[in-house]
Nucleic acid binder design. Structure first.
Lengths: 248, 248
DNA sequence: CTAGTTTTAGTTGTTTATACCATAATTACC
DNA sequence: GGTAATTATGGTATAAACAACTAAAACTAG
């Protein structure tokens, strides 16, 4: 095709048929239940076709004047009440056959999904039941077959979560303001499994990195020696931003 | 807003005004000129408004029946003839004000850019001049102000390039079939600067990782002792896929 | 007071990164 | 033909880091 043709492609008299898009966001929302050692994913039930009766990732179509990130925050806020979270864009899925509403012969509509990845504090998250469609936390390993290509999106999100936990301080976005090293380790184990450092070496490494400041206070919950309470120091983290926090 | 309203949002009688999208891809195409030690970015001149006369990243609008990745490959193929390359999706930029064609009052159109990142072999890449709009390799440090938010996209792409080079074998996608360790080191230095291992330690690490197979053959170009020619062994790389190749 | 639990603080052996050096094998030049 | 320059290769030594393990400290439960 000539470049001339190409340049006219965005004019209305274009000889090349462009796709018309509906753009949505779909969120992979994770939460860590450290009490029960479970990594949870938020899914919602689809009441209407396509895929009526299937669980899916919570999503929405993007509105006028709304950024992609705003749309992602909105769909999250419609499903759960939470004030501590981390959110970032994940990947854009936009093949011409990912939604059955796209007919293969009549190319009248294309559905694009700009997926986002979120991590929310479990103790803080209150699911909003609207009485119309179901909503539930599913342990990652037990997530059923989801609508569209959402299982693929979820797999992508899980990889990102592991990666982020290894290199970024996102754990502190969902931990309480002050926490013990045991809390932190618990979170890592729940997400990553136990294929990394034991507690003792985990402690040593994190403390040596130097971005955890001891508050001086102690916990005394349950049996055992009281643990020191730490706070995350964002400024002190700067020099560590490229160093791994754990070794998987 | 009620969930009922939300669920009807994708019907034509929706009370919530959805955005209509034009979806394009914009490519950050890198190439490494190891002869002159330069990291190059491909830019094209925009002949028409908006941003007429500005350099920009090569992009195109997505066509009917075309996947995002296909569109990215297509725009690349329209600009350069090359057969060895690496390409992956980068990030989706879709704020409501990134294109001046979007009027802030009349929300009639939204331009979404699914950016992609590519690395091509320099010796292999032949730019396709169409006589209408300019096209050029720019050394990264000398890239001028680009159209739209393309400088931001470029910055994002450069970060991805450095990251990929650290952990992924993308260098071998643009190196010749057989190459010397000097060639490989040169490529890394050109992209990353010299803030990592010296040549000797670089050699030692790469050879120890064990995915470079010695072909037995030698080069003899220019002065100095002839270098062994190596080949990348994809199968042997598998166990190394999470280990860094260099330490920045 | 004793047993159990959890946190904390180490020690030790092995691996690994880094800086640096010596030598080998070629070309360039006088 | 000999010598210098150049590039590749194969080391060594030192310091740091990871991993596995041990032991003591500080609490609770009974």
């Amino acid at each position: 095709m000539s470049a001339k043709l190409h340049r006219t492609a965005n004019h209305s008299l274009s000889p090349v048929p462009l796709a018309d898009f509906k753009v949505g966001v779909d969120n992979v929302i994770f939460s860590v239940d450290t009490q029960q050692n479970r990594l949870l994913v938020l899914v919602v039930m689809r009441p209407d076709p396509p895929f009526a009766g299937y669980w899916s990732l919570p999503g929405t179509l993007v509105r006028q004047g709304e950024s992609l990130e705003d749309a992602a925050y909105r769909v999250l806020a419609e499903k759960i009440r939470v004030n501590t979270l981390y959110l970032e864009q994940l990947y854009t899925f936009g093949g011409p056959d990912r939604d059955p509403r796209e007919s293969p012969t009549a190319f009248d509509v294309r559905y694009l999904s700009v997926s986002h990845f979120a991590l929310v504090r479990f103790e803080d998250a209150e699911l909003i039941a609207d009485g119309v469609s179901g909503i539930a936390w599913y342990p990652l390993a037990q997530v059923p077959q989801l609508a569209f290509d959402h299982n693929e999106i979820l797999a992508y999100g899980y990889r990102r979560l592991r990666n982020k936990l290894e290199y970024s301080p996102i754990a502190f976005d969902v931990l309480p303001e002050v926490f013990t090293l045991g809390d932190l380790y618990q979170l890592y184990v729940t997400v990553l499994g136990d294929g990394f450092s034991d507690y003792s070496n985990f402690r040593a490494r994190l403390l040596k990195l130097g971005f955890l400041q001891d508050t001086g206070r102690k916990t005394s919950r349950g049996a055992g020696r009281p643990a020191s309470l730490y706070r995350f120091d964002a400024a002190a983290f700067e020099p560590c931003k490229d160093k791994p926090m754990v070794f998987i």
